[in-house]
Write a protein that binds this DNA or RNA. Structure first.
Lengths: 345, 345
DNA sequence: TAAAAAAGTGTTATCGTACACACAAACTGT
DNA sequence: ACAGTTTGTGTGTACGATAACACTTTTTTA
């Protein structure tokens, strides 16, 4: 039963003062070669780890973190992210933090830029966590964050470059392949498959493309399927979707690449046909469809965990100086009517 | 930008010393009615919460936690639990803890009782986390833990009573239903389904039973399926399984309730028939089968997360006095050949 | 060679909480 | 009325890490 080593123990073992040990630990210089050697030697031998508790106690600055995500009022998907953020705020409530959430309009790149611009003007901003729906605008923001030495984190969507300090998300290409495999198991050869992209306003373009590429890559190994793609935004759905269905009929399976899955069974009801269906995200309306048997699988993007892990990473980096991986990929959860409850807790 | 309230702030606002505030906070008496009133009033007004960080700093005791789980050498499934435990040990390495792992033979209840008995004899044991494979023996242990005021936690298997302080696991009944739904989607009506229980030595009896009940409950809604059950232990597999298959042939789908799924495709190879198959756990051999297309789905019990969350809960209870829920149910993950990698990181 | 600058080292206050201790004021009993 | 007890209150120190500060020793410069 050995007690944890403290800086005092190290100092004593090395025959120096705690001041010297501290200078070695923080590489603050002003240490002789001799002291340096003996302290590092003792440090390695005794496996010293500074007590994070004591460290944060002394360092009583108030860290400021801002979170910027799409408005949940415009798209319900983001509500769960908000919940994840709020959970972390509670969890770290005992620490001196000032965390504020801001929302932008997911259909307006300018709204993103504008709020982003305001946020980085904040005095003493320590970290910014955001959802980079718009590639160009996000990169502009990131560059400014980097020059100002502000810690950056993204989640949900990913950027192709390496500018961000930390990213939390899913591999969308694999996610498309998962959907493909699920559908493949449900249908017969020579079936007809429709890929439907329903977006607010063509912003998730990269997002949807990656899923489609994964999906297609899977079916390339099997030539006997006919696959067609329809891309439309939310408003066009009522007008364009029925036409598409009529022309491509009969459709054996649908792969919907966004969370607006619930639109499809609704629209198909008049048709009377029963198709296999795989889509994204556990929105209330999607879950209802799943339970009613109107769709087969949902792929869970785990927005809550993505957001909370992202924020947690930034916080721990700030207060514990914990190193965080540049990229963290979460599992791709397959959800059907029977395990959906287990994800909703 | 408001700083966190400290005990000093409260004392100042109430016009008393921090000692008095402290006595009010800890109900240690020796406080006049007048002081009591004004301090509680200020306390409520300013929404004071003591800093748990500073609190633990003072309390420099070394906590002792023991973990008792089935030997990974006897059953590979437990290897990942071990990994989860070790990750947490690293994560909390900076704190004063003494965590030790002990293993018992999953086929011998006596081995569990014996080591359990030894562990609770330990002086100053603060918490015990264990896998309660054996109901009777586990309850005996739990009662002793309770009388000795030792914090208790279980994971993976659950007990029907309420004696344990904290449990982390999955709902096995639902898990059986998930398997049922997966199989249902893959086969035609009037198919024949086999439920196979392969156990080391009939210890997971409750475990397997719960899964079977969930599975059956799903198919009760559809009368047109023929379901047969085979229960055997690992050693009997070679001899009894082929007979069973021959008698019940053709079998359209298999539901294997334990992690020994990999045995089945192997045994069926000589048969030449292709059946649907759903089983449990991401053992290396199971993953190989999944990738080769020899089985359709695996249900992931997430042993690593179960173990690590369980241990983390106990630790946080001890050092931060964080309240932990009596029961924590993890999601039931559905795994196919395309998302399996995302769970193996 | 003396003065100035730099390098190296130890001491100490601080963060917020907890608790022992000291001390004063208000009571008790003889 | 005075010693002894109880009650109430404030002060001081500890926990471990950190960094400012003070001090000594060495090196550089004029």
């Amino acid at each position: 039963m050995k007690k944890k080593q403290t800086i005092k123990d190290i100092a004593h073992a090395a025959g120096v003062s705690i001041g010297t040990v501290d200078r070695v630990l923080h590489k603050r210089g002003k240490v002789s070669k001799k002291s340096m050697e003996i302290v590092t030697k003792v440090l390695n031998e005794l496996d010293y780890k500074p007590n994070p508790i004591a460290r944060t106690l002394k360092n009583n600055t108030i860290y400021s973190i801002k979170v910027l995500l799409p408005d949940p009022k415009k798209d319900h998907y983001w509500k769960r992210c908000m919940e994840g953020i709020n959970e972390i705020i509670v969890e770290f409530g005992a620490f001196d933090f000032e965390i504020e959430i801001y929302c932008y309009d997911p259909s307006k790149p300018k709204s993103f830029s504008k709020i982003g611009e305001q946020l980085i003007q904040t005095e003493n901003l320590d970290a910014l966590l955001f959802v980079p729906l718009f590639e160009k605008e996000s990169n502009t923001l990131l560059k400014k964050l980097n020059t100002r030495q502000i810690l950056s984190g993204t989640f949900n969507s990913s950027l192709s470059n390496n500018l961000v300090d930390q990213h939390t998300g899913q591999d969308l290409y694999s996610s498309g392949r998962v959907a493909a495999k699920l559908i493949y198991d449900l249908i017969k050869p020579h079936s007809r498959i429709a890929i439907i992209h329903i977006d607010e306003a063509f912003n998730n373009a990269i997002h949807m493309k990656q899923k489609e590429q994964g999906f297609s890559s899977f079916f390339k190994e099997y030539s006997s399927f006919e696959i067609k793609t329809l891309t439309l935004n939310s408003n066009e759905f009522q007008s364009k979707f029925p036409d598409f269905v009529e022309q491509f009929n009969p459709i054996d399976a649908f792969f919907i690449t966004t969370s607006k899955v619930y639109e499809v069974p609704e629209a198909l009801k008049s048709q009377g046909t029963k198709s296999k269906m795989v889509g994204y995200d556990l929105l209330l309306r999607n879950v209802e469809c799943l339970k009613k048997g109107e769709m087969d699988f949902l792929i869970h993007q785990n927005p809550k965990i993505q957001a909370s892990l992202g924020l947690k990473g930034l916080i721990e980096k700030l207060i514990f100086e914990k190193e965080i991986p540049k990229k963290r990929l979460l599992p791709i959860d397959i959800v059907n009517s029977e395990n959906v409850e287990s994800y909703l807790i």
